[in-house]
Simulated assay, not measured.
Amino acid sequence: MAKIDPDEIKRPLTVGEVARRSGVAVSALHFYETKGLIHSVRSAGQQRRYGRDVLRRVAVIKVAQRIGISLASISEAFASLPEGRSPTAGDWARMSSLWRKELGERIMQLTRLRDQLDGCIGCGCLSIDACRLRNPLDELSEQGSGPQLL
């Protein structure tokens, strides 16, 4: 087994190293940084350098995105984490409990949409007057048929 150099563990990672180790494109890392999800410092040559905690943060981002969590929700969850520290199992438990609620609400909404879709399959009309999928919450119908905001 190779001996681990303590100085190597402390060395910041380049964007290319983070991309290779996380399986995420460099452009995605730059995007996550513009959204405030991850942070870097600049080297003397103005190159991005990342702390090793960014690898865990990127892993959390990718898992959360895979289950359908928005970047806005991920950002809100990350706001409670201290900078420069990898998310812990406790952090994950807190974040996932929030996301579980969000996913439950989305599942209920999708179930309602699926059930409404079943009612439209028979006619296929997508009627502006009668179809809840084509024209949900039509508040302007009281003013008559046709476009009302011209």
Rank of each mutant, 00 (worst) to 15 (best):
K3P: 01
D5Q: 06
P6A: 04
E8V: 07
K10D: 05
R11G: 01
V15M: 11
G16L: 02
R21Q: 10
G23M: 03
V26P: 05
S27D: 11
S27E: 13
A28F: 02
E33C: 15
T34S: 11
G36F: 02
H39T: 08
H39C: 06
V41E: 13
R42L: 14
Q47N: 14
R48I: 15
R49L: 15
R52G: 08
R52N: 11
D53S: 09
D53Q: 12
A59R: 10
I61T: 04
A64D: 04
Q65R: 07
I67C: 09
G68I: 04
L71K: 02
A72W: 08
A77I: 11
F78T: 03
S80K: 04
G84S: 14
R85K: 15
R85E: 15
S86L: 05
P87M: 13
A89F: 14
G90D: 12
D91G: 15
R106Q: 12
L110V: 08
L110G: 03
R114T: 05
Q116F: 10
Q116E: 11
G122T: 10
L126D: 01
S127F: 00
C131K: 01
P136D: 09
L137S: 11
L137M: 08
E139L: 14
L140K: 03
L140M: 10
S141N: 05
S141T: 06
Q143E: 12
Q148K: 02
L149I: 09
